[in-house]
Design a protein around this nucleic acid. Structure first.
Length: 930
RNA sequence: AGGCGCGUAGCUCAGUGGUAGAGCACUACCUUGACAUGGUAGUGGUCGGUGGUUCGACUCCACUCGCGCCUACCA
């Protein structure tokens, strides 16, 4: 391999990582220049997590936008950073601790948190390394972590200010309680899914002995905490019972029968047991009727009722005992199978209990109002737009946000209590002491709240906390509001809405102008990728390749349900019998971009990435060809004399059109169209046609030097532009080739990254050249069609006759004779003039020009008849349709004149062509057997 | 119950009020000096269904069938 020529085969592994290191060390990722600011905040991945397909997809999109804008001269910042991911991270470390036979409680809070920091130091670099493998041009010099001092300070500031404005409050409320993790979680972290259960019908005797009511429940164990039975006020069946009391079975407590509209008379028996301490609806009923609230569960969700035989039993164990006891007492009327929704924690998968505890809440409604307005007014635009309805739907029905978590890993709530339960919310313990001293007139012991904040609380500040807020930094001034947020729809509520609310509240303006909402990557079968399903693909495996055994190993180790392993192994072997080949980062990125359509689900199909790996290879080899033909040659630089032929002007025109298409696509976040435009240009036009045409010019001994210089110039310059056009999607291969090609194209600069993005120049769209090469392609196509359909070897030299051409046809022929002969493998091209009758030929039409291939031994009569017949049939169908259109007076009168005119022209052309082909068909048929 | 999305070639997906597209797969021929991770040609769709608007509907509207997601839920 010489210095100027590329290696024979495209090997992504050899080129990618070294380039990234050079870029990073050169400081190319940091914002520079005085252009308008462009900023994207990375959705911070979990600090101890690893890169999954969703990340890789999202980061590809962001990097494409960032590189595109950077090349356009924007002062571009892609903010790097990670999230402390409270529950997730704590769980990981706790599990490791448990594996050592210890619990976090044995360790104590301080030591446990220290362990987590150690774990972060140990594994925190993985995801950032993986992002580098993806080519992500994040500004690592500005990397942030949500628990950095600066960001923690922002959290404090926001908490204190919201508290001072009464937008944060503490209260004893029914919350979603995770009995495994021992913490409250927000509504959003609860996953409710239908499961099989039972509906137990239980007899509740009236105290006055006048009978009983039957209540239906899915949770009989909560009856221990019943404080009423409710019926609908209009339910005639139970009107007389309202106001009476019931002796609660097993407990023998007397509880009232009340009337409340909440009850659906049509469901079950129409009587509902009310347990305000353990059901959200019952809690509301309890509030309305001033019912006592009796808690019967421990934080572990075991029965907590001193003196009861069920005390200490887990809720599910208690359930079966209670049902058995009721049955024994003759109070169980019946048990129905019943499907109902069961709430589970998204992290622990434990059944969530509504549980009465002291928690901190954000009063969301006042914050939601301006956040709704911002989207209504268009200060923030969702792309695609339909996501705004989802956003509105949620924001208009939003409930207060429970932000306290009974965890150890996270931002500790900046609230201190005195011994009388007084609360001092402050930026520091010292400040809290001052406040306490002011209240009590002396120093008193204070104790800080044990809880930490929901991770999403700090994430909500990400767009400004990373830029230094509450300090008014230069970065904050420059980059806030950021340009666009790129995210999946699954976290619109968790994250996007909350960033908007907090951004408006604390900065007075929206955190981003646009929200590009992309779909979720699924497997080839449309299943969500998850560890437990064993269908995870690791983006790095697609880049580097993975052997089948290793892949199976990755998918089957550490499963929650190890019994699924054989099934997962079988499915994996079926889908990837030979493992996964290495495709390189560029191919993976291009694949993601091509899949970025407007839909919700994205099925990841291995065929796509293979195709794009081939595309890389195509580009690589095209570049090799160009370098082989231009390196060390005159390429029309520095005033060197050159001339451009139609082919050159054509490919230059097509380049402009492609550039315009690409700009249009990326400005509308249509990365799929961007990939398609570039792919088609490079493969189908530059490689398939221009390279082939250039070979002819360069090999033609009769061709002028100027034309040859012009051809070389065009080869390198169009390639160089195409590389820049492609760079945001395929950073590595484009940089590698660019380094070789740029000098030949008269470009200097150390990296393609910092070059200008190509912009279409409409004055370079030469319509004549487009027509001329279009003509050439049609004539070549006509010959190839005949060749192909009749199975004539591509190299078998043919003679072609052209007849009935227009002045343009002969003009084009004159200039493209050599090209036509070479591309169509023609030995001779002759023009039939005047009354010369053509020999028996296979015939095709290009406009009115007849392309005739005389029938010789190479031509099969039956094949030609078949070929013509096929064309005739198609033409007849089209013609019939066109004619009936024109025969419709309404069409002729009402359709726009140009549409009608076009239809007439088309019909005439088809008519002529059909006659020609039919005549030809008859002529061939009349020949004797071949 | 409310909201949203999807249904186009065997598969994965674009698309537009005016003659249906791409990639992959498939078939035939071809190892021609950039590339077999390649070349050339070709097969393949009454655009889920019904009705309406229109000169004209795959496209707009209504209804309908099927699939999926989200939110809120009847104990």
């Amino acid at each position: 391999m010489t210095d100027t020529i590329l290696s024979k085969t495209y090997d992504p592994h050899a080129i990618e990582q070294p380039l990234y290191d050079v870029w990073e060390q050169s400081g190319y990722f940091a914002p520079t220049g005085n252009g308008p600011p462009y900023c994207i905040m990375i959705p911070p991945p979990n600090v101890t997590g690893s890169l999954h397909m969703g990340h890789a997809f999202q980061d590809t999109i962001m990097d494409a936008l960032i590189r595109y804008h950077r090349m356009h001269g924007f002062r571009t910042l892609w903010q790097a950073g990670t999230d402390h991911a409270g529950i997730a991270t704590q769980m990981v470390v706790e599990r490791r601790l448990n594996a050592e036979g210890k619990t976090r409680h044995q360790l104590g809070r301080q030591a446990f948190v220290q362990r987590i920091w150690e774990w972060k130091a140990h594994s925190g670099g993985q995801i950032t390394r993986q992002l580098r493998r993806m080519g992500a041009s994040l500004d690592w010099s500005r990397e942030r972590f949500t628990m950095d001092p600066g960001l923690s300070n922002a959290v404090l500031e926001v908490f204190v200010r919201l508290y001072e404005e009464d937008l944060i409050y503490r209260g004893k409320r029914l919350v979603n309680w995770d009995p495994v993790l021992h913490t409250a979680i927000s509504d959003l972290e609860v996953i409710t899914e239908e499961e099989n259960g039972h509906l137990w019908h239980i007899r509740y005797p009236l105290s006055d002995g006048s009978g009983h009511l039957v209540v239906a429940t899915t949770r009989p164990e909560t009856m221990l905490g019943d404080t009423a039975v409710a019926v609908h006020p209009d339910d005639d069946r139970y009107r007389s019972a309202v106001g009476k009391t019931i002796v609660l079975p097993l407990v023998q407590r007397e509880i009232p029968v009340i009337a409340d509209e909440y009850v659906d008379p049509a469901f079950g028996s129409g009587c509902v047991k009310i347990t305000p301490a353990h059901d959200f609806n019952d809690y509301a009923v309890g509030q309305r009727h001033d019912l006592p609230i009796i808690n019967v569960l421990t934080p572990d969700a075991a029965i907590d009722l001193e003196g009861s035989p069920y005390h200490g039993l887990d809720r599910f164990e208690a359930r079966s005992k209670i049902v058995a006891q009721l049955d024994a007492e003759g109070l169980l009327v019946k048990t129905d199978a019943h499907r109902h929704k069961v709430p589970r924690g998204d992290r622990s998968n434990a059944v969530i209990e509504p549980y009465l505890t002291n928690q901190w809440f954000v009063k969301v409604a006042p914050l939601a109002e301006p956040a709704i307005a911002a989207v209504e007014q268009g200060d923030i635009r969702f792309v695609p737009d339909n996501w705004s309805s989802t956003y509105f739907e949620w924001m208009r029905n939003i409930e207060d946000w429970c932000i306290s978590r009974q965890l150890w890993w996270g931002h500790r709530i900046p609230a201190w209590y005195d011994e009388e339960g007084g609360i001092f919310v402050a930026r520091s313990e010292a400040e809290a002491r001052d406040k306490a001293r002011a209240k009590h007139g002396r120093d008193i012991p204070l104790r800080q709240d044990e809880d930490v904040l929901d991770t999403w609380f700090s994430s909500a500040l990400w767009p400004f906390s990373t830029l230094g807020w509450p300090r008014q930094t230069e970065e904050l001034q420059t980059f806030y509001p950021t340009s666009v947020l790129v995210t999946g729809f699954d976290i619109i509520f968790f994250w996007v809405a909350r960033m908007i609310m907090f951004g408006l509240k604390f900065l007075g303006s929206v955190p981003f102008r646009e929200v590009y909402v992309h779909g979720l990557i699924r497997d080839a079968l449309g299943q969500k990728m998850s560890k437990s399903k064993g269908n995870i693909l690791d983006p790095l495996d697609l880049i580097d390749g993975v052997a089948i055994d290793e892949l199976i190993d990755k998918r089957t180790t550490g499963l929650m349900q190890p019994q699924l392993a054989p099934r997962i192994e079988a499915a994996t072997r079926k889908e990837f019998p030979n493992g996964i080949a290495a495709h390189g980062t560029d191919a993976l990125r291009f694949t993601f971009a091509s899949l970025a359509t407007q839909g919700r689900d994205i099925r990841f199909d291995l065929g796509r990435i293979e195709g794009y790996r081939n595309f890389c290879n195509k580009l690589w080899n095209a570049a090799r060809f160009v370098l082989m033909n231009t390196a060390g040659e005159r390429c029309g630089q520095d005033g060197d004399d050159y001339a451009l032929g139609a082919a050159e002007r054509w490919i230059i025109a097509r380049l402009q059109q492609t550039e315009a298409e690409v700009a249009e696509a990326i400005e509308h976040y249509r990365f799929d169209r961007m990939t398609q435009a570039i792919y088609a240009f490079i493969w189908d036009e530059y490689c398939s046609w221009y390279l082939e045409l250039s070979k002819i010019t360069l090999a033609d001994e009769d061709e002028t030097t100027q034309r040859k210089v012009g051809t070389r110039r065009t080869l390198v310059r169009v390639l160089e532009s195409a590389l820049r056009l492609l760079h945001p999607l395929m950073p590595f291969i484009t940089e590698t080739i660019w380094q070789k090609v740029a000098p030949l194209a008269g470009k200097d600069g150390s990296s393609i990254m910092t070059q200008a993005y190509p912009v279409a120049d409409p004055t370079k769209v030469d319509e004549d050249a487009l027509r001329e090469i279009g003509w050439l392609q049609s004539v070549v196509g006509a010959v190839r069609n005949i060749r192909g359909e009749m199975n004539i070897a591509p190299t078998h030299p043919l003679r072609v006759l052209l007849q009935d051409g227009s002045a343009d046809d002969w003009d084009y022929l004159e200039r493209n004779r050599t090209g036509l002969a070479a591309l169509a493998h023609l030995a001779r091209i002759d023009v039939l003039t005047g009354q010369q009758g053509p020999p028996d030929s296979a015939t095709a039409l290009v406009g009115q020009l007849k392309v005739l291939l005389p029938l010789d031994s190479a031509i099969d009569k039956d094949a030609e008849l078949k070929r013509l017949g096929k064309q005739i049939t198609k033409l007849e169908g089209d013609l019939t349709r066109s004619r009936s259109k024109l025969a419709n007076p309404n069409f002729v009168q009402r359709a726009p004149a140009d549409v009608v005119g076009k239809e007439r022209e088309r019909t005439d052309a088809m008519q002529t062509a059909l006659e020609e082909l039919q005549a030809q068909y008859e002529k061939i048929r009349a020949l004797g057997p071949s």
